[in-house]
Structure formats: C-alpha cells, structure tokens
Design a protein around this nucleic acid. Structure first.
Length: 412
DNA sequence: TTTTAGTCAATAAC
DNA sequence: GTTATTGACTAAAA
C-alpha cells in the first residue's frame, strides 16, 4: 500500500521533533530509512542531511498497511520528545482541549502560510485531505470525542506547540514538489516510449484486463436526498420495513438508504455541535466549553420550543440534558441513573502539571477552566428543522423505552 | 443486531 | 490545485 507507506514516511520526518521543551531521552531506531516506495523518497535526499538527526531520534514503528486505522497502533507522530509516551498515552493523559480553538488556529496557520490540508493531514495527522477538511470545519467538542477521535486534536496541539512547525511543513512541501517534478519528467519519458511501442488497441486491451474491482460511487439526486430528508424528519430511525419501502420507492439499494440515515444522523449531530460552539463563542464564552448544562444538542432544554415537548414523559431531568441524539439503547441505559457526561469532566484524568506542560497549552486553547455554555435559542430555521427532527428521535426512543414492542398506540 | 464514531476516497465545487 | 461534500466502510459500543 504505497499511500500508507508514503504517508508514514512523510510523517516520520516531522514527528521526530521535540515539540516542547522537555528533557528527552530519545529512543534510537534500528532503521531510519524512509519507505522505499514513498513518492518523496527521491526528494528526501535533498533535505536528508538536515533532518537525519531528528529522524533518528524517533522511535519508529514499522508502518504497516493498516496501521492508521488500527486502534492502539501508533500513527506517524511527534512523540519521541515526550518522554517515550505513545500517542494513546498522551491522549489519555491530555487535559481537556478546546477543539474549536485548536482547529481555528490550525486553519489560520495553514492559510497564512499557504499550506494545504492534504500535506498537513498526511504528514502531521496521518489523515486524508477530506478527513482533515471535515475535522477543521466541524470539530466536535472534546468531551464528545472518543479516545481515537481526540488523537488528531492532540496531534494538532503538539504541532501548534512546535515553534518550527511551519518551517518544517514548508520543507516538506518543497520536497514534494521536487519529487513531483522528477516523477513527471520520468513519466513523460515513459509515455513517449509507450506511444511509439504500443498501438491503440493494445492500450484498450490492457485497460480491459485491469480488474474492475471498484464500485462506481453512488451519487444521490437532489430529489432523492430531499425525499430521504423528509423521511428523516418523519422518522430519524426508520424501521427495516420503512427502509425497504424507501429504497424501493427511490430505486436505491437498501444499504444505500441505511448508510444515508447513518451518515445523516451523524452529520446532523455534528452540525448541532458546531452551531452550539459558535453560538457560545459569539456570546463570549469559551467556544467549545463542555456543555455541562447545555450538553451539545441537548441544549434543547434551554430552548423553549423543544424543551416543552421533550420534557413531558422524560424519565428524569438529566435525561433531558443528555442530548437528543443519543442512541435509543443509550437512552434506556440512562434511565438507570448513570452519571451525566461521565467522560466529560476528566475526573479520572490527571490535569495540569506535567501534562499541561507537556502540551504547553495556552489558556485560550485548554478548556480546563472553561465555563459552561450559556443557553440560547436557535438562530435559524434550519436549526429548528433539525431540532424538530431530533424531537422525533426522542419520541422514537421514548416509544421504544416505554414499550419494547412496536407501540401501536400511545398511552400517556 | 443496531447504532455510533471515525475515516477513506471519489468527486463536486471553488 | 485545493477544499468541501458525501456514500461507503470498519470497529467498537450498547
């Protein structure tokens, strides 16, 4: 898997740098050579001398094809400087970070220095461009992130802390360009010889011989999306039967409809997070402050329109604040009196002291001292719409909780 | 088994 | 060429 290898190779250069001023005992690696198939490998030569020393400080793990998606496997990362801590350990020990402030700062630095998301993502985060774009545009609040989800933010924070971050990324950019030019030159030469040696039919044949493994991407028509959105407004959690019906009516595969609902729920949820954050920011609070009372989309309890209707039949006050979008199962579990936002307060996590210094987190970025997000009303109709849909979601869950068998009638 | 979280990668939009 | 969007997928939680 060339992309993975090149990604890992790219990252090793950057990630072997001490990002904060801490006494380090760098582990030495048996091999500091970059991945052989890395597109940058030729260009790397030119800057190798500058970076070799840093590279070899890294505790390098052989990059594997799937390393990036496997939890627990260290990603290409700036860790060697951190007293031998793995990224997972750092994430686990990290104080609460203000994801919104971090992404804002990262965007700023990247734009100011004309650095692309792809380069940043592949070399610093170990993520693809699309993922980076998504992450930067719609960061989830820290307390809503799983350990894995926190990882990119910790990486960003570490990168921001590195005084030479831009410089290094610039170097990387230059190397990439060099390598690209080199490849382009050689491929031009190749295509010349191909043109002279292959007839048109030969090319067609070789193309035909390529196994057609890739499925064409499904692109939903606007009407189809509209129909699905309407269905979502009615029922955010459609039954298998409804899904079947939708699929046949829209002439789509069932799996496409299922995926669409999964994705839509997830993306709506995130949109609500970001709207929450922005609203809080505009009101002067810490942007991604842990909602505590407002609870992400759960701030509906502050919103007269929804809270009135959601309050009825809610099992408990805390339930109301738990957020409209949590899964039905979770909701049922919540009824048993589980503490609110168990992971949010970071009670079991060391805060400040060595870890704060490790991250070098400025006040503006850490939310450890942040205040709760104030309540607010929705500012536009789209938000209202989403919340209305979420209301349906709640109703759905209440139905389920109240009556395990599909309820035909409501009893109040 | 269903849902969520996180991500990839194709491709649309700029 | 870069960034945004989005259908599909995997892993993990519930």
């Amino acid at each position: 898997n060339t992309p993975s290898l090149s990604r890992a190779a790219l990252a090793l250069h950057f990630n072997s740098v001490p990002l904060v001023s801490i006494e380090i005992t760098p582990k030495t690696s048996a091999s500091c050579s970059p991945a052989p198939e890395s597109p940058l490998s030729s260009a790397e030569e030119s800057v190798k001398s500058q970076q070799e020393e840093q590279m070899c400080q890294a505790s390098i793990q052989e990059p594997s094809e799937t390393s990036e998606s496997q939890p627990g496997t260290p990603l290409p990362l700036p860790l060697p400087g951190h007293a031998g801590l793995s990224i997972q350990e750092m994430v686990a020990m990290s104080p609460e970070l203000d994801t919104y402030a971090i992404t804002k700062k990262v965007k700023e630095v990247l734009t100011d220095n004309n650095l692309g998301q792809r380069l940043f993502g592949e070399s610093i985060l170990g993520l693809t461009q699309g993922s980076v774009s998504d992450l930067l545009a719609r960061p989830k609040p820290w307390h809503k992130l799983s350990l894995k989800g926190r990882e990119p933010f910790v990486r960003m924070q570490l990168w921001l802390n590195d005084p030479r971050n831009v410089e290094k990324l610039m170097d990387m950019k230059r190397m990439e360009k060099k390598a690209y030019m080199k490849r382009r030159h050689s491929s031009i030469g190749e295509s010349h010889s191909l043109e002279s040696g292959l007839s048109g039919s030969d090319l067609t044949q070789s193309q035909q011989q390529q196994p057609h493994l890739k499925k064409p991407r499904v692109v939903l028509a606007p009407e189809e999306k509209e129909a699905l959105k309407r269905a979502y407004q009615q029922k955010p959690y459609p039954s298998p039967k409804t899904i079947e019906e939708l699929a046949s009516q829209l002439n789509l595969k069932t799996s496409t409809v299922i995926n669409w609902f999964h994705n839509y729920r997830s993306r709506i949820r995130r949109e609500l997070f970001i709207e929450e954050i922005q609203a809080a920011a505009s009101e002067g609070g810490s942007p991604s402050a842990r909602p505590g009372k407002s609870g992400g989309e759960g701030d509906n309890s502050c919103d007269g329109t929804e809270s009135d209707s959601t309050a009825e039949g809610r099992p408990s006050g805390s339930e109301e604040r738990k957020g409209l979008l949590e899964s039905p199962n979770r909701s049922q579990r919540d009824e048993e009196g589980e503490a609110e936002f168990p992971s949010a307060s970071g009670t079991s996590r060391p805060r400040g002291g060595i870890i704060d210094s490790l991250f070098g987190i400025p006040e503006s970025v850490s939310t450890a001292t942040a205040t709760a997000t104030p309540c607010r009303n929705p500012k536009d109709s789209s938000l209202r719409k989403k919340k209305a849909a979420n209301l349906n979601n709640i109703i759905h869950r209440l139905e389920k909780a109240a009556n395990r068998d599909e309820p035909h009638e409501w009893e109040f």
